[in-house]
Nucleic acid binder design. Sequence first.
DNA 1: CTCGATACTGACGTATGCGTTAATTATAAT
DNA 2: ATTATAATTAACGCATACGTCAGTATCGAG
Lengths: 139, 139
Amino acid sequence: MTGSEYSISDLSQAFMVTPRTLRFYEQRGLIVPRRQGVTRIYSEKDRVRLELALRGKRLGFSLEEIKEIIDIYEPKQADDPRQLIFLLKKLHEKRKDLINKFNDIKETLNAMDAVEERALSALGKRQGVRASQMPLDLI
Amino acid sequence: MTGSEYSISDLSQAFMVTPRTLRFYEQRGLIVPRRQGVTRIYSEKDRVRLELALRGKRLGFSLEEIKEIIDIYEPKQADDPRQLIFLLKKLHEKRKDLINKFNDIKETLNAMDAVEERALSALGKRQGVRASQMPLDLI
DNA sequence: CTCGATACTGACGTATGCGTTAATTATAAT
DNA sequence: ATTATAATTAACGCATACGTCAGTATCGAG
């Protein structure tokens, strides 16, 4: 399409999901593209929303939770102080969820390190640095 | 019970899940407690497996994936080199999954920071340090 | 104008992860 | 001995997140 607008198959191919998924997300209010007649036209914003949604999915959030998160990203009443306060509260709440997940990951990685060391020494090998202690960008 | 053994309600209460959940996990081969007659008796190892399982759930792994992860923690043939190599491969694979999730979390937190800054400045406030840049232990 | 590609709306089907009776049994307390 | 309390299996139910037709419409190419 025009480069900043996408058909349903454009987006679904780009993100490796089926059109059915996009239509389903629309039913749930996650991504509601504009229509040209009856055909869905996805904007750049819609593309970003899909990206966010799939990120949320990989982290195990439900579509309901994902909707809440996405709606945080695109505040509607960007001027109303009440809305802003509410948004900040939501934000901290979601941040807590993410940090909990982060800690779960840390503990899992630590436990895996222990298992790996045992396995390596059982193989008679030596290894100075544990993989999950490497800078995360380098793995 | 004896302190290192638990009934099904002991465990389910301790981890805030229903007995049904434990029986379901047993069907899926995740946690298979010993039986005293027909009654389930959970060992300390079983308790740990449950802890690991629930951690996996919070990270959005399926019970199938969780089973794979748990089985990594408790290697069966701790001496067979073939098994050890296989285990190490699995380990690195799962580690990749975890690191991908980690990156998803990082990006989400960054985006939330940006939203928060906009919200705060829209509220006319100033804030030097963004919350997710704090040491994670302190939040 | 016909054909193939793409899109649409139902509507039913399905895997996952349990919830919820129901009917029965075993254990513990009075 | 009787009654709670806790445990078991079996089986149906249900929410989530789509998959999979079926039937119809649109639209550009030949």
